[in-house]
Simulated assay, not measured.
Amino acid sequence: MFALAGLQSCHSPQKSVSRSGKNPNAREQDFMYQYSIIDALMAGVFDGDLTIGKLKAKGDFGVGTFNKVDGELIMHKGRVYKMSSDGSVKEAPDADSTSAAFVKFFKSDTVIYFKEPNLTYEKIQELLVNKLNENSIYAIKITGTFSSMTTRAASPAKPPYKTLTAHLGENQKLFNYTNTTGTCVGFLLPPYLARTNVPGFHLHYLSGDLKAGGHIFKFSTNAVAVEIDFTKGFTIENNTNAEFRNVNLKPDRGAELKKIE
Rank of each mutant, 00 (worst) to 15 (best):
M1R: 09
M1L: 12
M1S: 13
A3F: 03
A3K: 07
L4F: 11
L7K: 01
C10D: 11
S12E: 10
S12T: 05
P13R: 09
K15Y: 00
S18N: 13
S20M: 05
G21C: 08
G21M: 02
Q29E: 09
D30V: 06
Y33R: 05
Y33E: 01
D39R: 12
D39H: 09
A40M: 05
A40S: 13
L41W: 07
M42W: 00
D47W: 04
D47T: 14
G48K: 02
D49P: 00
D49K: 02
L50G: 00
G59L: 09
D60G: 10
T65N: 12
L73T: 06
H76L: 14
K77S: 09
K77V: 02
M83W: 08
S84V: 13
S84L: 08
S84P: 07
S85Q: 01
G87D: 10
S88H: 14
A92R: 01
D94T: 09
T98N: 09
A100E: 06
A101P: 04
V103H: 01
K104R: 10
K104I: 13
F105C: 03
D109S: 14
T110Y: 00
V111M: 01
I112R: 08
F114S: 05
F114I: 00
K115Y: 03
N118K: 15
T120N: 13
T120I: 08
Y121W: 15
E122G: 07
K123A: 14
I124Q: 09
Q125A: 02
Q125T: 04
V129C: 07
N130E: 15
K131M: 12
N133E: 06
E134Q: 07
E134C: 04
N135A: 07
I140W: 05
I142T: 02
T145V: 06
F146L: 03
S147L: 07
S148H: 14
T150Q: 14
K158Y: 00
P159R: 11
P160A: 12
Y161W: 03
L164E: 02
G169S: 12
Q172G: 08
K173F: 06
N176M: 10
Y177A: 11
T181H: 04
P191E: 14
R195D: 14
G200A: 02
F201I: 04
F201Q: 03
S207W: 00
D209A: 08
H215E: 00
I216S: 05
F219M: 05
S220A: 04
S220G: 03
S220W: 01
T221S: 15
N222F: 08
A223L: 11
A223Y: 10
V226R: 07
E227T: 01
D229L: 12
F230L: 03
F230G: 05
F234S: 12
A242R: 08
A242N: 09
R245D: 00
N246W: 04
N248A: 12
L249Q: 05
L249R: 03
A255S: 12
L257D: 01
